[in-house]
Computed example of a mutant assay.
Amino acid sequence: MRAKVAGRQAGAAVARSSVRSVLKRVPTLRLSRRDCERLLDLLDNPPKPNARLKAAMKRYQKARRVDAQGSQVGRSFDWRP
């Protein structure tokens, strides 16, 4: 029984250490309550893609097809509009 408890405590300590390590590397974004609610609403109900996003998706898909065929190995996708 004590071994299980000690194992859990050790596992929790490793988890806390990992979380701290990640939090130190990842920038923190502070949002107001209103902005947080807006962000969550957009995640739950994303807007429909506009013309620019649709065009970018087509360019990306075309570039992936070319890369998948291997005809232009090493080609990187150009994200400019």
Rank of each mutant, 00 (worst) to 15 (best):
A63S: 11
D35Q: 13
K62G: 07
M1T: 10
R20F: 00
E37N: 01
A10N: 01
R8L: 06
K48T: 00
D78H: 02
R33A: 07
S76P: 03
R34E: 13
D35Y: 11
R80W: 03
A68G: 07
P49H: 06
D44V: 10
A12W: 06
V66L: 02
A56I: 01
V22Q: 02
D41T: 10
L40C: 08
R64N: 15
V19D: 00
C36F: 14
R64V: 15
Q9T: 01
L31D: 04
P49G: 11
Q9D: 06
R38K: 06
D44I: 09
C36K: 08
A63T: 01
A55C: 01
N45L: 07
D44A: 08
G70A: 00
D44R: 12
R75C: 08
S18A: 11
R16V: 08
G11Y: 10
A51D: 15
K48Q: 13
A13V: 08
S17T: 09
A6G: 02
P27W: 13
G11F: 07
E37Q: 12
D78V: 00
A68R: 14
T28Y: 10
W79D: 13
V5Y: 15
S17K: 07
A51V: 11
A51H: 14
L23S: 00
Q72F: 09
M57L: 13
K54Q: 15
S32N: 00
R30C: 05
S76D: 12
K62S: 12
P47R: 03
S32A: 00
S17E: 09
S21Y: 03
R34S: 14
R8G: 10
L29E: 10
R59A: 05
T28G: 04
N50C: 05
K58A: 09
L31F: 12
L40K: 14
R80C: 10
A63Y: 08
G11C: 06
L43C: 06
R25K: 13
K62P: 03
A12Y: 06
P81Y: 15
R33G: 01
Q9Y: 04
R80N: 07
R34V: 06
G7D: 11
R75S: 06
D35M: 04
A63F: 07
S32T: 07
V66E: 02
N45R: 12
D78F: 04
D44K: 14
P46L: 02
L23M: 06
G11D: 09
D44H: 08
L40V: 09
P81T: 12
L40N: 09
G70E: 03
R8W: 12
V14D: 08
R80G: 02
Q72D: 15
C36P: 02
R20Y: 00
V5T: 11
V5Q: 10
A68D: 15
K58R: 15
V5R: 15
R16S: 12
Q69T: 14
L42T: 05
W79P: 08
K24Q: 03
L53H: 10
V73P: 06
C36M: 10
R2K: 09
V5L: 14
R20H: 04
R64S: 09
G70W: 12
V5H: 13
A12V: 04
G11W: 11
M1P: 13
R52V: 07
